Simulated scan of single mutants.
Amino acid sequence: MNYWIPKLISEAKSELILIVPYIKVSPNIFKALKKVDDKGIDITLVYRENKLSAGEKNKLNSFSHLNLLHHPNIHCKCYYNGDLLILGSMNLYEYSEKNNREMGILLHKEMMKDLDLNMQGWDSDSKAIFDDAIFEIKEIINGAQVEKLSEKGKSKNFKIEIIKTDEEYEIEKSNRLNKYFLNKKFKAFEETENNWVSKCENYFNKVDVLIENNRIAIQFNLPENELKSLYQKWKLTYQEYEFPAIKYYWNYHSSNLLIYRDSVSYDWDNVGRGENYHNKLAEAIGQIISKYRILTGR
């Protein structure tokens, strides 16, 4: 705990959340917080109401990027930087560092996702455990009283990006897509439990488009016999790199056709996420739709 809490704090990249009932920061913790504050990263600190001395409050108020809140009855100890999450028994208390027997658990956001992917067929729900913890963080912050907001906290109406749900992120992504795809309207869609994508139903006649993190899925909504016929025709001329800037796979007639970016033939990494990027996505989808129309006569 003495190693990982300062490490979690100092390695924060965008935002930092600390929820502890009692605070009397050690030099070690103060140094880590100062490092984060100097980088312009907002620190949101929630403590238990009436459990912070004037001296400690003055020390914390020396940070320029601090959001300070208090809550009447929190007892949990939680540290989160958007990537690493620690749940445990230790307060931000110097005495605890030196004398107490403390325990905790360290969770890594991306590793929890990967664990679920690698544990298919087992009773694994690692991401749900992580999501439950983030939900509780949101509830605590929502129920707390604000004492001080940083300038960034004021300007953003105190929106903390790292505690947004996957659904909220997907809603934002769908809204961005709709700015560029005009009449093709995407909505956040829960494809499987806790797995959100942006979906446009009937992007073309009997064709849905799902835009995921690193790929596009094309879903042909045809009767079984028509779908099998289309698949057989498609396979006669199929080539993985058939179209520029993308590679695609269609492995079985009842599965989705999957499009991936091909960074060898097109510089996807430097195209940004603006109009050019979205035009290229639309072009990739359009190439698949064109082939679909030719093979089906639609």
Rank of each mutant, 00 (worst) to 15 (best):
W4H: 11
S10I: 14
A12N: 10
I19E: 03
I23D: 07
K24A: 08
K24W: 04
N28L: 07
V36D: 11
I41G: 10
E49V: 04
N50Q: 03
K51C: 08
L52S: 01
L52C: 01
S53V: 15
E56G: 02
S64P: 04
S64A: 15
L68E: 09
L69P: 06
L69E: 12
H70G: 09
H71W: 01
C76Y: 05
C76G: 12
C78I: 10
L85I: 01
S89H: 07
K98C: 02
G104M: 00
L107P: 13
M112K: 08
L115W: 09
G121Y: 05
E139D: 10
K154H: 04
S155P: 09
I163M: 07
E168D: 11
E172A: 12
F189P: 02
E191Y: 11
T192G: 03
T192P: 04
C200I: 07
N202H: 08
D208C: 00
L210E: 06
I216Y: 03
I218C: 01
P223W: 05
E226Y: 03
E226H: 04
K228C: 01
Y231M: 10
L236Y: 00
Q239P: 02
E240V: 10
P244F: 10
N251E: 15
S255L: 11
Y266F: 15
D267F: 06
V271R: 06
V271L: 05
N276D: 15
I285P: 09
I288D: 00
